[in-house]
């Protein structure tokens, strides 16, 4: 009997993101932080050398993390481990796939390697998550093979305003689609620079065709619940946890806030006595050339 076993299909790649829904994915830079994240109830960790707040502060070129460090984090936890490659750097992605990373984040937080092209993600067995600021950007990334989307926000700020802007932009554009007559869809697809097929699919489903998390500026349980109420399927927290006064406590609180995002009484309870939040910088005070979200769109 011939038994067909299919691996690396879009179904298992996007399906993995479906299993992460209602969860929190946390940036970690050491195995100890990864264990704290898992203990707090994170559904996955993002292994990186520096959290975005430090990448922002340090300047210079930010690249894929040292594989030694990523391997140590893979060995430290049983939950999925994600890692970032530079936009367009398909060799960094090949390396991460070979190491057994569970999800690759093709991320604007690192310095882009290609300002015109993203990685052709269909060629990989490992799934990719990509950032977006609006519906067009999200659908372009999905066309390239992204199996999961996150709204970008502005990483490393602790300021949720850009995350809100991008989530509202995506959800608002989908609501608008549902009111468009068929004959206006072609122009809409042209304006968004996306395929008509994918746009029609999005209109029919009334949501992005893959899981969409919020990212970039979430620092409190209330921020996380805000993003969920705005339509996020889950939340990435980068600098917000391990740049705060009591990371374990804050991580645990944000996990609960994402589950109980519609229950203000529980949100009030979990928001108590969390210690200092990350200091943060107002996204509005950042010069345009230093914004991460506008890289390679």
């Amino acid at each position: 009997m011939v038994v067909d076993v299919l691996t690396g299909t879009f179904t298992v790649k996007s399906g993995h993101a479906q299993m992460l829904k209602g969860g929190v994915i946390m940036d970690v830079v050491t195995p100890d932080q990864a264990r704290i994240a898992q203990e707090s109830g994170a559904v996955a960790v993002m292994a990186l050398e520096r959290v975005p707040a430090d990448i922002r502060a340090d300047g210079g070129v930010a690249r894929m993390s040292d594989p030694t460090m990523i391997s140590q984090i893979i060995d430290a936890v049983s939950i999925p481990v994600m890692a970032k490659c530079r936009i367009g750097h398909f060799v960094e992605a090949q390396i991460l796939q070979a190491m057994g990373v569970d999800y690759v984040d093709e991320s604007e937080v690192l310095t882009p390697a290609d300002e015109a092209h993203h990685v052709w993600k269909h060629d990989f067995a490992v799934p990719f998550v990509c950032g977006c600021r609006d519906l067009g950007e999200a659908l372009r990334r999905i066309s390239e093979g992204a199996a999961m989307i996150r709204t970008k926000g502005e990483a490393g700020t602790g300021d949720v305003v850009e995350a809100v802007r991008h989530m509202r932009a995506v959800q608002g554009a989908i609501r608008k689609l549902r009111t468009l007559p068929d004959d206006e869809m072609v122009v809409e697809a042209r304006d968004l620079r996306v395929s008509l097929d994918l746009l029609q699919q999005t209109r029919e489903e009334g949501r992005l065709p893959v899981v969409n998390f919020a990212a970039g500026g979430v620092a409190t349980p209330a921020d996380a619940a805000l993003m969920m109420q705005l339509g996020a399927d889950g939340v990435f927290v980068g600098s917000g946890i391990f740049k705060s006064g009591d990371p374990a406590r804050r991580a645990h609180a944000i996990v609960q806030a994402v589950t109980h995002y519609q229950d203000p009484h529980i949100l009030a309870d979990v928001s108590k006595n969390l210690g200092e939040a990350m200091v943060g910088i107002s996204a509005r005070s950042i010069p345009a050339e230093q914004l991460l979200a506008t890289r390679s769109v």
């Binding site: 067909d4 076993v5 299919l6 691996t7 299909t9 993995h16 990373v101 569970d102 999800y103």
Partner: peptide
């Protein structure tokens, strides 16, 4: 790991 996820 995830790359070994499959359909059958």
């Amino acid at each position: 790991r995830q790359v070994d996820s499959f359909e059958q």
